[in-house]
């Protein structure tokens, strides 16, 4: 345990402290440790994992709805596309940029950008439809210089380079690919409602009647491990397991 006590300053100490305070002001007025990023003309370099606006790749989407389900702010809603699949839309009037959606996306269809400085005229424009999330958007930019904060052993250093930052990050797929398949863990409880068969996107689930009892069959090769059937199973007897 450490006790902190503050002694009264004597007049001499007070004078010293006054001098020190004035000294700092004088020194800083000559050699300031300015730390300013002059934003509209300069832009601060953000790391690649920066959480900004979200881009979407429909090719990789397995239509699992997990981004919509995990979104704490309910900013992501699924919109039906012409191919009858549901793709995400993001409402930036709600989005909190936690990127739980990106971390949930097992196919790597969602990815981040370094765009974050945007002003909307109208709140209705803030809903970004799926169509608008595919190509990188354009923002008004005035920056000519890129500023990078670096911390060395002595102080914060501000490195300025005359370049325009590229705001988009190449896709980073999930670092670990774990192929998963759906598996029925309690076949005896199956009531034969066919829900899993209906929801399966890849057609991996088929039903067969054996000995007068209907049984579901899951083809492990075609199963993408999206987990839709697991979620929908009325008896909760399906489980995702490693391939």
């Amino acid at each position: 345990m450490k006790k902190v006590t503050v002694q009264d300053q004597s007049t001499l100490e007070k004078a010293k402290c006054h001098a020190a305070a004035i000294g700092v002001a004088m020194k800083e007025s000559i050699y300031p440790l300015t730390a300013t990023v002059q934003y509209p003309r300069q832009r601060k370099k953000m790391p690649d994992n920066f959480r900004g606006y979200i881009l979407f790749d429909p090719e990789k989407c397995i239509n699992c709805w997990e981004c919509a389900f995990i979104c704490p702010a309910n900013a992501i809603r699924m919109k039906e596309a012409p191919n009858k699949k549901y793709y995400p839309t993001v409402d930036y009037g709600k989005c909190i940029f936690c990127h739980f959606c990106i971390d949930s996306c097992s196919g790597g269809a969602l990815r981040t950008t370094k765009i974050h400085d945007v002003a909307y005229k109208d709140m209705d424009d803030m809903v970004t439809l799926t169509e608008e999330m595919i190509e990188p958007p354009e923002i008004i930019r005035e920056d000519k210089t890129l500023v990078e904060y670096q911390i060395d052993k002595k102080d914060l250093q501000i490195k300025k380079t005359r370049e325009v930052d590229y705001l988009f990050v190449d896709e980073v797929p999930p670092s670990v690919e774990i192929p998963m398949v759906s598996q029925c863990i309690d076949g005896a409880s199956c009531i034969g409602c066919h829900v899993c068969e209906q929801v399966c996107e890849s057609g991996a689930i088929s039903s067969a009647i054996a000995n007068g009892v209907m049984r579901m069959k899951i083809d492990t090769d075609t199963c993408t491990g999206c987990g839709l059937c697991v979620k929908e199973c009325s008896m909760q007897i399906l489980k995702l397991v490693r391939k």
């Binding site: 765009i115 400085d117 945007v118 002003a119 909307y120 005229k121 109208d122 424009d125 970004t128 439809l129 169509e131 608008e132 999330m133 595919i134 190509e135 990188p136 958007p137 354009e138 923002i139 008004i140």
Partner: peptide, 9 residues
């Protein structure tokens, strides 16, 4: 104007 423009695909 709104400072972001999306391209529709």
């Amino acid at each position: 104007e709104t400072t972001i423009k999306f391209k529709k695909v």
